[in-house]
Design a binder for these strands. Structure first.
Length: 861
DNA sequence: TTGGCTGCCTTTTTT
DNA sequence: AGGCAGCCAA
């Protein structure tokens, strides 16, 4: 029986700890104090999930399991009570001494493992932990993605399962190469089983933790399954000899290693006393096993997720992980965070009314104390151009009302949908940025150079070697390469070794000199790799391999690619700078391999963001446009017949809606060009699921007036009709011309920036990334004009552009659809058009092409 | 061996 | 519409 003083202290201790988390609501606080045992936090969208995670980890590190506990590290005295009271009143931090008494078995920062899905989420978590706990302590918490956590484990312990600790990571492109090679050797018909579907089936096996042997043992009955099994076996063997792992392997092999090796397992179980998993609804079977193995010691595992936001089933996520959590982890507690701090209640109502149509939910209904807000807007457009124009209109309105560009996001189902919006924004001079789509590190030229680096790091890497041996062309064709591969296989050595001894093989006599000079170059590069700083070395690779010369020989396209390589060198430099002595070539490649586009998304940049709904998960914006709300687009055609897929699609819709804080703009179009064909889609069934009471409907004037006719002269300068004439057929054909050349290929993905000066080519994201700042990513912050200038065809072949060359002169006053009024400060003639620099009253200096900018000249009255 | 061309095919989401 | 593979000609 505790004495009175002890009792008083304990009560006071609880009160004190609670006061440290006073900014949380009671349910959130409960989650923070539940530190021991399995815990499932069902966190609705915008319910302060990350805040809870950060505070919970802080609590574990600071106070351990003190809250609600009766344990004391030593007998307490009246003085301790007075001391604590004083601390509370002064609102100062407790002394070290006090903390020792307050805490019960606090964890060291490195005892905590927090797993997220993206590097960005991990970085954010770390950033917030640093803010709360200080740089040192916060920085020592293990916060990483599943994949990078596994890489770290395997770099230490891969040898336990027969891989070199220095294994290479194969991305999906490498994967495809290996598979194709296997197809060739086994003479498999790629019509019968497309390589991509073989990959996805293999990937599916790995997600379910089935090895090639497991699959073979199940004696697949039909021929296709048998074939897949055969391919899987060959594929796994190939990767093993190359000392390589693909993305799925990282998880798969980690789990296998931990299952097999008690020593390693216990090491990690001891090390990670507390495990937190974010986005648990998106975990696969393999990832579930990983979590269970790691948490096997203490069972202190906390998973956070929202079954309504599970949108990665196609990639192996199994929603059962979250639905069965309480069964698998016996004695688990469940806490529901249902108060939403993000959106207006109208937006939440819309989200709730959509998701309500799903079965098999854990069930939860979000509510908010935020105001009702405006209704959810739905606009019916005539075409995708009209849709884009409407978005631009609204953004313009919002800007004039004081919003920033970066407050806006345009979300869509598939990447292809970004095109019309991009085109329109580019023309209108709205700075935008695309997240996703073709990733910077997926570009051919970047991957080629990275492959050179990879072969230098790992001479056994035949896949990468094949990629670069004749790129640029060196007279080493596929026949020669196949011969080399054959010889290498026969001797059980890497291809590179055969190449080094090319002269000794009669079969290679004809290409011996080409092979010799290739090998010589390789040797030289290897030597340089140890003497030169990393970034200089990368530059040297681009030069010495002849890659630079090859690109220079091409014209515009080569130039853009060369620029990308310049950025590659930049990111090598960034990496080198950030890692100092630790920096290695293989370290760089590893970071590159695990980076995703969303990781380099930087909300500081003042641009509109365009991305898929998938990419937008976890983000929020005051103004969200959800475009393409049509049956056949969203939900897509492919999912209409499967109820399960339909539900996933609906969850995706729910995710999209709940990204919006203030305003949600839904739009559908009567007709849309899709896969090269114009289609007329009915409005999305999701639209009809939204309570009409919270919807505000409008439609394009083009539809009301029967379409064409009005304002045929478009928005060109000096053309009467001005703003109202701005919709209509003109836009249609303009757009087509525009598509012909502008911004279609390399380098222009990021749209263009204001010339305010703050937008430097350092690339977005460098700041938020803990590990590398590969922000250089998707396209430099280029300006539209240079991008467009290259495509003179755009203007010269356009059907007479149907309007006068816009005659602007410095000093002219203009009215721009989006940016409002401004004054022309500079005009540069360019490819039949003019680049106009305008000082706007509200938004500063912007550049835009005269013929395509939605603006009119006016004179002061 | 190379490079250019045609004609095919594919269209979701990504660590 | 666009990318890619495979074919063919040099």
């Amino acid at each position: 029986m505790p004495d009175a003083i002890t009792q008083e202290y304990l009560t006071l201790r609880d009160r004190y700890i609670e006061s440290c988390f006073a900014n949380l609501n009671p349910v959130q606080r409960q989650a923070v104090f539940t530190t021991e045992g399995p815990l499932l936090i069902l966190a609705g969208a915008g319910s302060g999930k990350t805040t809870v995670l950060v505070n919970r980890i802080a609590n574990i590190i600071r106070f351990g399991k003190a809250h609600g506990s009766a344990v004391l590290s030593r007998p307490v005295t009246r003085a301790d009570i007075d001391h604590l009271k004083a601390t509370m009143e002064s609102r100062r931090a407790p002394s070290q001494d006090q903390l020792r008494l307050l805490a019960v078995e606090p964890a060291r920062p490195w005892n905590v493992l927090a797993i997220t899905f993206t590097n960005k989420a991990a970085g954010e978590l770390k950033e917030r932990l640093k803010n709360m706990l200080g740089d040192t302590v916060g920085g020592d918490v293990n916060a990483s993605t599943f994949h990078s956590a596994c890489v770290r484990i395997l770099r230490r312990d891969a040898e336990r399962i027969g891989f070199p600790n220095s294994f290479t990571i194969y991305d999906s492109d490498d994967q495809l190469r290996v598979i194709k090679q296997i197809y060739k050797e086994l003479m498999i018909d790629d019509k019968f089983l497309p390589p991509k579907s073989a990959i996805s089936r293999i990937s599916g096996f790995k997600d379910k933790l089935l090895s090639a042997a497991d699959v073979a043992a199940e004696a697949p009955s039909d021929t296709k399954a048998a074939l897949v099994s055969k391919i899987y076996t060959a594929y796994a063997a190939r990767l093993r000899t190359a000392g390589a792992m693909d993305f799925d392997d990282l998880i798969f092999h980690t789990v296998r290693m931990l299952q097999k090796d008690a020593e390693a397992r216990e090491y990690y179980q001891k090390k990670f006393r507390y495990i937190v998993v974010d986005e648990y609804q998106d975990t696969s079977v393999a990832q579930f096993h990983l979590v269970r193995l790691l948490a096997g010691g203490t069972r202190n595992v906390c998973v956070v997720g929202d079954d309504d936001q599970s949108i990665y089933k196609f990639r192996g996520a199994t929603i059962e992980n979250i639905l069965n959590f309480e069964e698998v982890f016996k004695g688990a507690r469940t806490i529901r965070l249902e108060q939403n701090y993000r959106s207006t209640s109208n937006i939440l109502d819309a989200a709730n009314s959509v998701i309500r149509n799903n079965n098999g939910r854990k069930g939860k209904t979000l509510w908010t104390e935020n105001g009702t807000g405006d209704k959810v807007h739905h606009y019916t457009a005539a075409s995708e151009q009209d849709e884009a124009s409407h978005i631009a209109d609204i953004i313009g309105q919002n800007l004039r009302a004081g919003a920033r560009l970066r407050d806006h996001a345009v979300l869509y189902r598939m990447n292809a949908q970004s095109n019309p919006v991009e085109t329109y924004f580019a023309r209108a001079g709205i700075p935008y940025r695309i997240v996703g789509g073709q990733r910077f590190f997926d570009r051919k030229e970047v991957k080629d150079i990275n492959s050179y680096l990879a072969v230098i790091v790992n001479p056994r890497d035949d896949v990468r070697l094949r990629r670069i041996i004749n790129e640029p062309a060196r007279k080493i064709g596929p026949t020669t390469v196949d011969k080399i591969a054959e010889l290498a296989a026969g001797r059980g050595v890497p291809m590179l070794q055969i190449i080094s001894e090319a002269a000794t093989y009669p079969a290679l006599s004809r290409s011996a000199s080409a092979l010799n000079s290739f090998y010589e170059m390789y040797r030289e590069l290897c030597d340089l790799s140890v003497t030169l700083p990393l970034d200089e070395f990368a530059g040297e690779v681009i030069r010495k391999t002849g890659y630079e010369a090859m690109l220079k020989a091409q014209k515009e396209e080569g130039e853009a690619r060369l620029e990308n390589l310049g950025q590659l060198v930049n990111s090598v430099k960034t990496y080198a700078d950030q890692n100092g002595e630790e920096a290695t070539l293989s370290g760089f490649l590893e970071e590159v391999a695990l980076i995703a586009d969303i990781d380099s998304y930087d909300e500081e940049n003042d641009t509109v963001t365009l991305m898929t709904i998938h990419s937008a998960k976890g983000l929020e914006f005051p103004y969200v446009f959800l475009i393409g709300m049509e049956d056949g687009v969203f939900p897509g055609d492919l999912v209409r017949y499967s109820e399960e897929d339909m539900e996933e699609e609906r969850r995706l819709c729910y995710v999209g809606i709940t990204r919006a804080k203030k305003e949600l703009y839904l739009s559908s179009s009567r007709s849309r060009m899709i896969f090269g064909q114009t289609r007329r889609n009915p409005p999305s069934c999701f639209l009809s699921e939204i309570d009409p009471a919270v919807m505000d409907e409008s439609e394009s004037p083009e539809l009301a007036s029967g379409g064409f006719g009005a304002g045929y002269g478009s928005f060109g300068a000096g053309v009467p009709g001005g703003r109202s004439g701005y919709s209509g057929a003109s836009r249609g054909y303009l757009n087509r011309e525009y598509n012909a050349g502008f911004g279609s290929r390399y380098g222009s993905r990021s749209g263009f920036a204001a010339t305010g000066g703050h937008e430097s080519p350092r690339g977005p994201g460098a700041r938020t990334l803990p590990s590398g700042g590969f922000g250089a990513g998707y396209g430099s912050s280029r300006q539209s004009a240079p991008a467009g200038a290259g495509s003179s065809t755009l203007l010269s072949t356009a059907p007479a552009a149907k309007k006068p060359a816009a005659g602007y002169a410095p000093g002219d006053l203009v009215d721009h659809k989006v940016f409002g009024r401004g004054k022309v400060i500079k005009v540069t003639p360019m490819a039949g058009d003019s680049l106009v620099e305008i000082q706007f009253d509200r938004v500063g200096v912007k550049k835009t092409l005269a013929n395509y900018a939605p603006m009119t000249k006016f004179t002061e009255t």
